[in-house]
Design a protein around this nucleic acid. Structure first.
Length: 423
RNA sequence: GGAGAGGUGCCUGAGUGGCCGAAAGGGCCGGUUUGCUAAACCGUUGUACGGACUUCAAUCUGUACCGAGGGUUCGAAUCCCUCCCUCUCCGCCA
């Protein structure tokens, strides 16, 4: 959520930045400011009345203590005279606060200066590529065939147990998941990230804090009996670890990593884009999260991008890094880099990570703050990225490394997997 | 799930209707003392949102906040209701 003080300070700038996203309702900024104006007036008026009531009440107490009952009664009548106006004032105050909240919540984050307008994924900018494109034999198979061949995942039984998009990993397929998770977590903790294993369901407050609510409500599985949401990413519970706290300066930057299964409803998409592991309802992911002071957050973003890039290099996969354009960025992000790996048999680039700086958009909702050198309480910046999402990594590993006698895994995984190849 | 106890500031903990944003102790920070450290002594110590002043900051001031939300009252940390959480015992259970 944008801060109201930013809108007050520079509405023109806010509108200009929203235009980079093609935000359809720039006039909301003015609506909000008009409401804010009213709110402050109403607040002053109401609080003045309240101050009067408080002072009279104090006097009543003193009069009663002095035994002056009739004096006290006179004051009580004075209070009663103010009471109705005060009640009305409080009510409209709440209404105004509610109205502002409703609207400001619908404003997406402002894109960073480096973000180009752009309309769709086609306008994203490739800023780096790496790795070697594999040369596959003519009879190379897509990963869903390889999965069958080596019995790594049983999609049919997963569908029987739950529904389509819930893979049942089996044998070496299951072991590979475990190997990847361990490798990613070790890699992250060696870089100073503290490991967490979070709850897989969260309440509405938590889902709101990172921006899943109200924007992406339909994407999460919901348990109506208990009012809980299945997490779509570990970002949600882990970032909220620090909600409503003023973080000690000596704890900054906060670096956290977590493995979790991720649950996504992603309704209504069929065809080759969603075959095999390209898109599923439940998948495994390791996430990295940082909370940093505003001055350093873009350095931190670069650091995280480099961190994920090195991980892809360890996996020996061909990759490219994209800077998302305004039209393709998520609601809460100020700047996002996407990582894609090339899945050679499908001949497709698959998104495996998304690293974003949210600036104060999330921390404003969660009230994650620190004290700056001047001792002033300020919002921290939050950042996160996948390191990495497993299914598409697995797809690329299988497709790119297939040979007649098995699938040859990158060296980094040998120890974790307990063997150099599948099959 | 049943029975009971409890949730107060950075921590411990007092406070059953007005003098309570909140005793006391500890911690933290600042100061005095000291060759240095410790001790001792003195002082300071929350957050949010308004307003005044101001370029900003500082300062002053108002309101709210004692788990959350409602209610009673001129007035609530204190009384009532609902919910959440923690602890103890019992039940169930990986």
């Amino acid at each position: 959520m944008l801060t109201i003080s930013l809108l007050r300070q520079d509405a023109a700038y806010v509108k200009e930045r929203l235009a980079v996203r093609h935000f359809a309702k720039p006039e909301w900024v003015d609506d909000i400011l008009a409401l804010d104006e009213k709110l402050r007036k109403q607040k002053l008026e109401t609080e003045t009345m309240q101050a009067e009531v408080n002072s009279l009440s104090k006097q009543i107490g003193q009069l009663m203590a002095a035994g002056d009952a009739s004096g006290a009664d006179a004051k009580k009548r004075e209070v009663a005279a103010i009471k109705e106006a005060l009640q009305n004032g409080k009510t409209s105050l709440l209404e105004l606060e509610e109205a502002i909240q409703q609207k400001i919540m619908m404003l997406p984050n402002l894109p960073h200066a480096s973000v180009k307008a752009g309309k769709s994924a086609d306008d994203n900018e490739i800023i780096n590529t790496g790795g070697v494109m594999p040369e596959l034999p003519a009879d190379a198979q897509p990963h869903w065939e390889l999965i069958k061949k080596y019995q790594l995942i049983d999609f049919e039984t997963g569908a029987k147990l739950t529904g389509s998009g819930f893979p049942l990993y089996t044998g070496q397929g299951a072991k590979l998941q475990r190997a990847l998770v361990s490798f990613f977590l070790d890699y992250n903790t060696q870089a100073g990230y503290r490991e967490y294993l979070p709850p897989l369901m969260v309440n509405d407050k938590t889902a709101y804090g990172t921006g899943q609510l109200p924007d992406k409500e339909g994407q999460m599985y919901f348990m109506p009996e208990d009012g809980l949401y299945m997490i779509p990413t570990a970002e949600v519970p882990v970032t909220n670890v620090y909600s409503n706290t003023i973080v000690d300066a000596d704890q900054l930057p906060v670096k956290m990593t977590a493995y979790s299964p991720c649950f996504r409803r992603e309704a209504g998409s069929f065809g080759s884009d969603v075959r095999g592991l390209n898109r599923v309802h439940q998948f495994d992911k390791v996430e990295i999260i940082q909370l940093t002071v505003p001055e350093k957050s873009y350095d931190t973003l670069e650091e995280m991008v480099n961190h994920v890039e090195r991980l892809l290099q360890y996996l020996e996969l061909p990759y490219r890094i994209l800077r998302l354009c305004g039209g393709d960025m998520g609601f809460t992000s100020a700047l996002t880099y996407d990582f894609e790996v090339y899945s050679a048999a499908q001949q497709k680039w698959l998104e495996v990570s998304s690293v974003s700086n949210f600036e104060t958009f999330q921390t404003n909702r969660m009230k994650i703050r620190y004290k700056d050198e001047a001792g002033k309480t300020q919002l921290l910046h939050s950042l996160n990225g996948s390191s990495l999402a497993l299914p598409r990594i697995v797809a690329a590993l299988l497709e790119n490394n297939q040979r007649a006698d098995g699938i040859y895994l990158p060296k980094a995984l040998h120890g974790y997997f307990g063997a150099p190849k599948i099959g």
